[in-house]
């Protein structure tokens, strides 16, 4: 059987809110090392990769590898019934066709069990090679969210450029153009307010803002976001999940024909 008890249940609620509009159905791959998920959006332009390590759970047991096929909208409906401070336990039998979500209130005076039907999903996994990216930028996640949202009101695509000075976001549309530069900034009081640029080569790529906007639904998971770029490769937008792992989004670029 599989069982995982997560003291900070709100993390799971946040993960679901971040991915449920991008991906419809996906397998949660459970093994003794944790829970992993990889899924593409229906157009195969964006991909979600989630890792929740066993060590981040208060209790974790997985007797044999399980692929739990889950409709994310339905799981989100169930998790919305958990309080933000609740402890959430996931449970599934090896041969079962359901998953149980147990919610415990912080002072243990309310225990809820929600059972959800699982589905059979043929998952398509992409092999993503380890890559030395040409540019890696870490910046406040709320700042990234704001920039992407602001640019979305002006254009459909953004050119993201990284030089050793910083990262720039540019767009254009019927009403005009916009260009935002965030410079490397390591002299701030709080580490989470820093913008750091690690660069081997300047890079500039074009992406659809609609997807970048969708990724920023993960902002609540982490105060910082890391953008990894290489020429003619999908961008990686990563939100680290404290003590547990990460939520990563990959987005294929637009390329001049």
């Amino acid at each position: 059987m599989f069982e995982g008890r997560l003291l900070q249940g709100s993390l799971l609620k946040k993960v679901l809110e971040a991915i449920k509009d991008l991906v419809t159905d996906t397998n949660f791959d459970c093994s003794e090392t944790g829970i992993a998920l990889q899924a593409m959006d229906s157009s195969h332009v964006a991909l979600v990769s989630l890792l929740l390590k066993d060590t981040g759970f208060d209790h974790f047991r997985c007797d044999r590898n399980l692929a739990l096929g889950i409709n994310l909208q339905n799981m989100s409906k169930m998790l919305k019934c958990a309080g933000n401070d609740d402890i959430i336990t996931l449970k599934a039998e090896d041969e079962g066709d359901t998953i149980t979500f147990m919610f415990e209130s912080p002072n243990q005076d309310k225990i809820s069990d929600f059972e959800m039907k699982l589905m059979d999903i043929d998952s398509e996994h992409l092999g993503i090679p380890d890559t030395d990216y040409q540019a890696i930028v870490t910046m406040p996640s709320a700042e990234f969210q704001r920039i992407v949202r602001d640019l979305s009101s002006i254009g459909d695509t953004a050119v993201i450029g990284v030089t050793k000075e910083g990262i720039s976001f540019s767009t254009g549309g019927d009403i005009g153009k916009a260009n935002i530069v965030c410079r490397q900034n390591t002299n701030v009081d709080k580490e989470e307010d820093q913008t750091t640029v690690e660069i081997h080569e300047p890079v500039s790529l074009t992406f659809a803002l609609r997807y970048l906007n969708s990724f920023t639904k993960a902002t609540a998971l982490s105060p910082q976001v890391t953008l990894s770029l290489s020429k003619e490769l999908p961008i990686v937008v990563e939100y680290k999940i404290e003590k547990m792992g990460f939520l990563r989004f990959y987005l294929a670029p637009k390329i001049e024909e």
Binding site: H44, V45, L47, G127, I128, A252, K254, I255, E257
Partner: peptide
Amino acid sequence: MSSQKSLGDFFQLR
């Protein structure tokens, strides 16, 4: 004109 690539243009199905 730039065209939207799909992830399959970069990564292999496994």
